[in-house]
Amino acid sequence: MRSQLVAGLRTFLVCTVLLGLAYPIAITAMAQLAFADHADGSLVERDGQVIGSRLLGQAFDGAEWFHPRPSASGYDALASGATNLGPTNPDLLAAVEESAVAYREENGLDPGAAVPVDAVTSSGSGLDPHISAANARLQAPRVAEARGLTVQTVLGLVEDHTDPQALGFLGEEGVHVLELNLALDELTS
């Protein structure tokens, strides 16, 4: 057993150097050369200032912004995660009901109006950068009014900032909230 342990220790150390240092460092070097933007986090800048990452959702409050989905972490990128509430958990159902009521109120919908499911549920990461197109369309009149734009203009922007499905059929299409809000802000400021 002793000789096996010695071989094990030496193999462990060799593997740590090869797979734990050489491999990730080589990948980092290649990634930084070929895809520096992605490798550094797809940073979004405005007037030379970093305002976040294209991939990570942000919190938006107030009538003039499109609102992202609810988030278990309040869009804190250093505490990613889901609510992990079970499907029959009363806390989950209360949160869904509350969100639905608040969503209708914010967006001037009838009390019984249908609400898209993404608007009242939290994502897996708490950092979902997208909302559904149906959700964005329901928010558009509110945003248009707050910014003094026509609904038509705002809906046009929604269209422009909708990410298509990968390869046309993988996953789902989604409206990119940060880019949409950025475009709105550039238009009105």
Binding site: L85, P87, V96, P116, T121, G124, S132, E172, G174
Partner: peptide, 27 residues
């Protein structure tokens, strides 16, 4: 259970359908 709150889960024009609690839109 979400149905009683008037929540649409049916995949349709612009609606990303299904049980989206804990799921990401892009998937």
């Amino acid at each position: 259970q979400f149905d009683r709150y008037g929540v649409t889960q049916q995949a349709d024009d612009g609606v990303v359908g299904g049980n989206l609690e804990g799921k990401e839109i892009r998937f």
